[in-house]
Simulated scan of single mutants.
Amino acid sequence: MHWFVAGSGFQIETELVKIQQAIQCYQNLERVLLEWKNTICNQRQRSMYSLVLSLVDVVGATCIGINTKEEFADIQFDVVIIDESGQIQLHNLMVPLSRAPKAILVGDHKQLPPIVDEKLKNEVQERGVEVDMLNKSWFEILWSDLPNNRKVMLNTQFRCPAVISNFISKAFYDNEYYAGKGMEKKTPLFSFFSSSLVFLDTSNFPESIRFEKKQQLPDREEIVGNPLE
C-alpha cells in the first residue's frame, strides 16, 4: 500500500500516525472476524457430530481417542475391531476393549512388535515387575493361550508375487502362508532383475556407503537405520 500526503512535515507525520492506527484497527478487526468465523464453523460442525454418529454403523477412531473424545461418550458399541493389534501394548488396548462387549483383534505378532520405551522398561525392571506386557502385545499372548475356535489365520495373500510370499511362509509361518490365484504370474518390478525376490549383502560395504544411523543405548550401540538396505 502506497500513500502520498501533501503538507508540512508535522502534518505528514500526524497523518502517517493516523494511517498506521487505521491499518492496525483493520488488522485487529480482520483477526476478530476470522476467529468468529472459525468458532461458528467449529460449533456448527460439532453440533452435527451427534446426528452423524446416530446414522452410521461404523465409527473409526484411535485407541485413545475412542475414550477421550466427548462425541463418543454416550455411544454404546456392539463390537470393537482393533487393527494392528500385534503392535499395541496392553495398557493402550484396554481403552477400546472397555467400550464394547465383544472384540475382534486383527494383527500379526510376527511382524513389528510394540515400541517399548527403554527408560520405562528399565524402571519397571528395577521394581521387580515382569516386562512381558511391554515387550509383547496382548494379541501375541492371546494367540498362544486361546483355543483354536477363538482364532483364525488369514493365510492367503493377493498382493505380492508368489516367490516373495513363499519365502515369507517358509521363514516365518511354517509353510502355512499361501499365494492367491494369479500371484505366481506377477513379474519383477524392475526388468533388470530376473526374480521378484533379490537379496543384496551390504555387510562388507564401508560405512560411508551404508549411511548407517546409530543410536547409543546404555548397554550397547544399535544401528537404527540403513538407507542402502
Rank of each mutant, 00 (worst) to 15 (best):
R159N: 06
S8A: 03
A73W: 05
V198D: 11
L34S: 08
S165P: 00
I82H: 02
V79D: 04
A61V: 00
D145S: 12
F139Q: 06
K18N: 11
S144K: 14
V52Q: 13
Y49L: 07
Q216S: 12
S169M: 02
V17K: 15
E229G: 02
M153H: 14
N155W: 04
S144I: 00
Q43K: 14
P206F: 07
F190K: 13
W138N: 06
S137K: 10
K18T: 00
K214T: 03
W143D: 04
P188A: 13
E118T: 02
K151P: 03
G7S: 08
N148S: 09
E15A: 04
K69A: 05
K18Q: 08
Y173M: 10
K185Y: 12
V79C: 11
D117P: 02
A61Q: 07
E35Q: 11
F139W: 05
N155P: 01
S137D: 08
T156W: 09
N28S: 10
G60T: 04
F190L: 15
K213L: 10
R127A: 08
S208N: 13
T39M: 13
Y26W: 13
D117Y: 04
T156M: 13
P114L: 08
S203R: 15
I141D: 14
N28F: 04
L16N: 11
D83T: 01
D74A: 08
F77C: 09
I141Y: 14
P101Q: 02
A162C: 02
I66A: 08
P113L: 06
E184F: 04
I209Y: 13
F172H: 10
D132W: 09
E123I: 04
K186Q: 14
V131R: 07
S196V: 03
A179D: 08
F192C: 11
F10N: 05
N92W: 11
I168R: 01
N42M: 08
E222M: 14
E30V: 02
N155F: 02
L134H: 11
N122G: 03
T202K: 09
V106D: 05
Q76C: 07
T187K: 15
L97I: 01
A100T: 01
F211T: 00
Y49E: 12
V79L: 12
G107F: 07
Q111H: 07
Q216M: 13
L142V: 01
P188Y: 03
A162H: 03
M48C: 09
V80F: 05
K181L: 11
V106S: 11
R159A: 07
E84K: 09
W3D: 06
R99G: 06
E30D: 08
Y178T: 00
E221L: 14
F139K: 05
V32K: 15
D132H: 11
S196I: 03
P114R: 14
E130L: 07
I75L: 03
S208V: 01
S50M: 02
F139Y: 10
I23R: 15
D132L: 10
V80D: 10
S50K: 12
K213V: 01
I88L: 03
M133W: 15
N148Q: 04
F192Y: 15
P96Y: 05
N67L: 00
Q45S: 09
V52D: 09
R99K: 14
Q216R: 15
Q11E: 06
H109A: 08
M48N: 11
V59P: 02
K185P: 00
M94N: 10
P113T: 01
E71T: 00
V116G: 05
Q157N: 02
A73K: 15
V163P: 01
